[in-house]
Design a protein around this nucleic acid. Structure first.
Lengths: 245, 245
DNA sequence: CTCCTGAAGTTGACAGTGTCAATATCGCAT
DNA sequence: ATGCGATATTGACACTGTCAACTTCAGGAG
């Protein structure tokens, strides 16, 4: 347990060497005996917390290469493990993929939440979350595309449950803000009408998601190039439709 | 050159039949004088208009399997041609992919345009195009995802120029409507301020694009399930932010 | 203390992919 | 008619996801 972290870090460092070589080497060291395993020891045959390591490796690769096509084998390589090891922890490529996406959702949720800490005005909060949302996507293209890639939605594997809970974060935040605004009479929506609330939430989400995607695909620039504070301006325009007039 | 056109037309018409067969046919018609070769013969070594045939094959596959991962080889197979033949007409997989996406953009543009024929009111026109846009995406998931997939934006190949002109269609329509509305004083945007117009257009596009994507990925249903006329309601909500208040 | 079972990792294989290089075919201008 | 250039084919390569069979090892039963 405590050892997890240690071996994980060492592994990451050792990634630059031949995977096979390092693997065999570690065997030798391991067999060498229980004496003085400390300094150079790669890892034991069993990793310890490979699941976590794989998710981390995936996240790292996602950050390194801004448009990267998720490859199970490369993740395994980065984790310093054979190409089939992941199958002990994930049923599918999609399953691993979903797990990596999930941490993305967590981070997005956290950023949105902390960005509106202390903001009382629902209007301001809504716009703020929108801006944070878009900027998150623009700063992490590959990660964002993975999170909203089609593969996840249709993955019938167990991972989709994990993803489900993760997405709840983002949309729950928008939902809370809009509900609060509606109750306070700030928005043009009645807090009583469930459907209107849902449509409002979806509208807000669709707006920021669409803007992020169009930006990432380079299409936004064909419409509105060189506009400063674009996310904020669009967020305001979207919000304008929800505010009480 | 003149013959070029002829064979191309024949191919297009015959798209619903086996591509190979049709190609052979047109070819044979031209050669027929020679020997009246035969009923069952395949096609000539050279296809005639393989480029078009490949685009058609791709479109067909896109329609058949609603989520299909574009595979160059499968397109070639469907066109009845070897797996490397496409490289004579497209520099890349991305290039072919862009060409197929382009016809999607054309169709989307046509649908949007014809849907607002005769509608004078810019508000109504804007909402109508939005609904048509979303419904197109929902009716053609694979095609829509291809059109807005990341691969195209970053393809440095020649095809992206083709795509560029194609995308212009969709956004030009929104642009026209919004400009007209602004000039008529119907929208909360000044026709004079270029930037405001651009932001308005982008907001509208982002809204419908985001809704389409969230719907396709099954995420919209986690927010607003079982809502009838959802596209129209969201389109109205988005438009509300653009209309004069 | 041994044994052995089951989880975790490894190796090897297979079909499928995008792409490159070499080759074959054939329409067409000379 | 003949050779050339565009078009199509075959073969190869590295890479992918996934399956099956094997090895390693920790920890509990006897």
């Amino acid at each position: 347990m405590g050892m997890w972290t240690v071996s994980r870090i060492k592994l990451t460092v050792a990634t630059f060497m031949w995977t096979i070589a390092s693997a065999t080497f570690s065997k030798k060291v391991m067999l060498m005996k229980k004496t003085e395993t400390a300094t150079n020891c790669e890892r034991a045959y069993h990793h310890g917390d490979l699941r976590r390591a794989l998710i981390d490796a995936g996240s790292a690769l996602l950050s390194e290469d801004q448009n990267w096509n998720f490859s199970l084998r490369e993740v395994a390589r980065k984790a310093g493990v054979s190409h089939n090891a992941p199958y002990n922890h994930f049923v599918d490529k999609n399953d691993l993929l979903a797990a990596v996406a999930a941490v993305g959702f967590q981070e997005l949720r956290d950023r949105m939440l902390s960005s509106i800490a202390g903001i009382e005005n629902p209007k301001a909060a809504l716009i703020k979350t929108g801006v944070v949302y878009v900027n998150f996507g623009l700063a992490n293209p590959a990660r964002y595309r993975l999170m909203f890639g089609s593969a996840l939605a249709h993955s019938a594997t167990a991972g989709s449950a994990l993803l489900e809970t993760a997405t709840m974060g983002a949309r729950a935040i928008l939902g809370d803000i809009i509900l609060r605004g509606a109750q306070a009479g700030v928005f043009a929506v009645s807090a009583r009408k469930k459907e209107d609330l849902q449509v409002a939430i979806l509208t807000a989400w669709a707006g920021v998601h669409g803007l992020t995607m169009l930006k990432l695909d380079g299409l936004a620039d064909t419409v509105a190039p060189n506009i400063i504070n674009l996310p904020e301006k669009v967020a305001k325009a979207i919000g304008a439709g929800l505010f009480r007039r």
